[in-house]
Simulated assay, not measured.
Amino acid sequence: MFDKDKVKLGIAPIAWTNDDLPDLGAENTFEQCISEMALAGFTGSEVGNKYPKDRETLKKALGLRGIEICNQWFSCFLLTKPFEEVEHEFRQQLAFLRDMGAKIIGASEQSYSVQGQQDTPVFGQKYSMDDTEWRVLCTGLNRLGRIAKEEYGISLTFHHHMGTVVQNPDEVKRLMENTEPEYVSLLFDTGHFAYCGADPLEMAKTYMHRIRHVHLKDIRPEIVQEVRKKKRSFLDGVRMGAFTIPGDGAVNFEPIFQVLECAGYEGYMVVEAEQDPAKANPFEYALKARKFIREKTGL
């Protein structure tokens, strides 16, 4: 069993309001979102596009519901912007997260990413880095990770993601081998590994001591296959229902939980399953996810 004092459960607001597809959940308010998170039994949240920018306003709203910020996505452009520009934006986000009490920042390299391109197929169109670009990325992440840890007390976790320069197991391996464990950890996302054809269990076993943040996401493989076959975009796949909550798709979570437990994982495990809320009621699915996790982990 996981230690309840060391492992917490969160859920991402992307099920209520989608950052990349603003029409999905446009009717759902910030207050509804965090209230339903709390009612479903979660204590952590990542940051959504409707969250108040004012720190005190956000703290009060979350505090009333027993919710805290556990992580926030950060878009890196280390390959295409001067490092100083990336660092400036990174520090601004770190300051916000420190003020909110968060211990994790989730970075994803967005240079040349096709994940947000509505008409670009997610399979077969991703950018591959050359050796020079790999050095720039890994060196830059080490520098950002050092800043995060030593100046803000926050851990940089890298989010492998469909459509980006770090998507598949070979790319994750190269990134992990060429970054410093003290400063760069892995944001382990079950859904993105499964989506690209990797085995999330094997990835958990391989990187169990580098994992500092977990996204619990499931996939519907028949829809992923349709996305591949019909050359649809990542965003099309979201609308079609490629992702779902843990326990509702093809990923076998029980052995993954066992690996993380045996590794002594500490931190947040966050349900992150972007769907069309008109088709998959966020509160209903949050309740289902919470029930599944309780049954499989005791948390």
Results as ranks from 00 to 15, higher is better:
Val114Met: 05
Val114Glu: 03
Gln115Ala: 13
Gln117Asp: 12
Gln117Ser: 04
Gln117Cys: 10
Gln117Trp: 14
Asp119Cys: 07
Asp119Trp: 07
Pro121Gln: 09
Pro121Glu: 13
Pro121Cys: 15
Phe123Glu: 06
Phe123His: 03
Ser128Trp: 13
Asp130Glu: 14
Asp130His: 15
Asp131Met: 14
Asp131Leu: 14
Thr132Ile: 12
Glu133Leu: 08
Glu133Ala: 03
Glu133Cys: 09
Glu133Asn: 11
Trp134Leu: 14
Arg135Thr: 09
Arg135Asp: 13
Arg135Glu: 12
Thr139Arg: 12
Thr139Leu: 07
Leu141Cys: 10
Leu141Ser: 08
Asn142Trp: 05
Asn142Glu: 06
Asn142His: 04
Arg143Gln: 09
Arg143Cys: 06
Leu144Pro: 03
Leu144Ala: 10
Gly145Phe: 01
Gly145Thr: 03
Ile147Tyr: 01
Ile147Gln: 02
Ile147Leu: 10
Ala148Thr: 08
Lys149Gly: 06
Lys149Trp: 11
Lys149Asn: 06
Glu151His: 05
Tyr152Gln: 03
Ile154Phe: 03
Ser155Gln: 12
Leu156Asn: 01
Leu156Gln: 02
Thr157His: 08
Phe158Cys: 08
Phe158His: 06
His159Ile: 07
His160Gln: 07
His161Asn: 08
Met162His: 06
Met162Pro: 02
Gly163Glu: 07
Gly163Leu: 13
Thr164Val: 03
Val165Cys: 15
Val166Cys: 13
Pro169His: 10
Asp170Ser: 09
Asp170Ala: 15
Glu171Asn: 08
Val172Ala: 12
Val172His: 01
Lys173Pro: 11
Glu177Cys: 08
Glu177Lys: 03
Asn178Arg: 07
Thr179Ser: 11
Thr179Cys: 07
Thr179Asp: 07
Glu180Trp: 06
Glu180Phe: 14
Val184Ala: 09
Val184Gly: 06
Val184Tyr: 04
Ser185Ala: 15
Leu186Asp: 03
Leu187Gln: 05
Phe188Leu: 04
Asp189Pro: 00
Asp189Gly: 04
Thr190Tyr: 02
Gly191Glu: 01
Ala194Lys: 03
Cys196Ala: 08
Gly197Ala: 05
Gly197Trp: 01
Gly197Glu: 00
Ala198Tyr: 00
Asp199Met: 02
Pro200Lys: 02
Pro200Leu: 09
Leu201Asp: 12
Glu202Cys: 00
